[in-house]
Amino acid sequence: MFGILLAAGIILVIGILIMMFRLEVLVDIVKRKSGKPGHSNKINAFLFMAFGIVGVVWILWYSWAEFDRYNLPLASKHGAETDELFWITTAITGVVFIITNILLFYFSFKYQHQEGKRAKFYPHNNKLELIWTVLPAIALAVLISKGLIVWGDIMEKAPDDAEVIEVMGYQFAWDVRYPGKDNSFGDYDFRLIDGSNLFGLDLEDDNSYDDFSALEIHIPKGKTVLVNIRARDVLHSFYLPHFRVKMDAVPGMQTHFKFEATKTTAEMRAELNDPEFNYELACAEICGRGHFSMRKIVVVDELEDYEKWKAQQKAWLKLNPDYLSKVPAAKREAAIIKAGITKEELNASL
């Protein structure tokens, strides 16, 4: 049934097109010598002007009225600078966008064909050309210099006292690792990865015993956070939209991004009047079937809450005591203490 309707529709449309085609050819032959533009020239010229005006008004209106919808709330320090640069660029390009497009349409309208008129023979004007080479160059110089300064700041090495965390992307989720009380990450090796040891923790390294992982990424407000980014299988991209952070996760190569959060989750909830609000981590580099679902919640705490939260977390080894067998015998005792494994847990795992 659907097929028949579709076929009928298509035949109808083609029929109409053929009719139009024929009619136009006939009218054309009767009414005017070829080459002389007729009535339609005026219509096209008018349509350009109308299109330009309606378009610009619509864009301005939408940009104004829906600002809160498309403007993503901001929660990082460097983000204020990149956003500022974004809006400076928007201001400059916005003005150019409107002026040039409107002029383009206006010229099309104003200089539409008129019988008996002759176009102006105006092949070049070096002064004009110089002006519009230099003007964009100046505008660009402003944008570039500001851009490079901001970029330099963002990409600068993180301060030594930065809070360091490690995030790893894999098909199709993220995992986070904290260095634990000793503040140093244990080594890892991709060959040690298995179903529980997602990070490939090297249990011969003392530093790994107190490393812990968490379901949600917690970070402190007002302190620089350095994220070491890894990937286990294919490319992913560590993307925190509210913090204006994005950096690819590359298998075989660690990447980094440092930033400072300026609003806790609670503060943002209050500001947006949305008790459900959560910061989110997304993946921004195509990585396969589940690319669109690589979500992880990010929680920003006040510094002291953050420290409290950290203190409550259990070391990975404590949660997976069977892996004690991978720890060299000589270090096992130290590992048990460092990971905070209790007697009962130890017995249960045996």
Binding site: A45, Y111, Q112, H113, Y122, T133, A137, L140
Partner: peptide, 23 residues
Amino acid sequence: IAIPSAVKVFNYMTTLWGGNIKF
């Protein structure tokens, strides 16, 4: 690279300016 691109746009527009345009 934006500069030569801008030059091209301005040149197109100046070509239209003062023309006798057939659409």
